[in-house]
């Protein structure tokens, strides 16, 4: 049951788009910064398989410029 957190940076001008995209995705929660173009993303997936799929999907997201992991936890 992995839980990870990232700092997500949007492509230029797509902060709102990125927030919308991420909050629409299952297993994702976001905390956007209010004075800079940075989004904190926390993912909480039920198993490794889902986690892999989610990471693949995230990589393909057009509004996302970069993603850097800040925390990882995998229970059991």
């Amino acid at each position: 049951m992995p839980i990870l957190s990232y700092l997500a940076l949007p492509r230029d001008g797509s902060m709102d788009r990125l927030c919308a995209d991420l909050s629409a995705m299952e297993y994702c929660e976001i905390i956007p910064a209010d004075n800079q173009e940075v989004v904190v993303l926390v993912t909480d997936t039920p198993d490794e398989q889902t986690e892999k799929i989610l990471q693949e999907t995230l990589k393909k997201l057009p509004s996302l410029h970069s993603l850097s992991m800040t925390f990882g936890h995998n229970a059991e």
Binding site: Y6, L7, E29, A33, N35, V38, V40, L41, T70, F71
Partner: peptide, 21 residues
């Protein structure tokens, strides 16, 4: 999850001075 968010925010704070959530 809260700890995960915490550490992301702490990280953001050291990389982007003045950032606010």
């Amino acid at each position: 999850k809260s700890a995960a968010a915490s550490s992301a925010i702490a990280a953001a704070g050291s990389i982007f001075p003045g950032i606010s959530f």
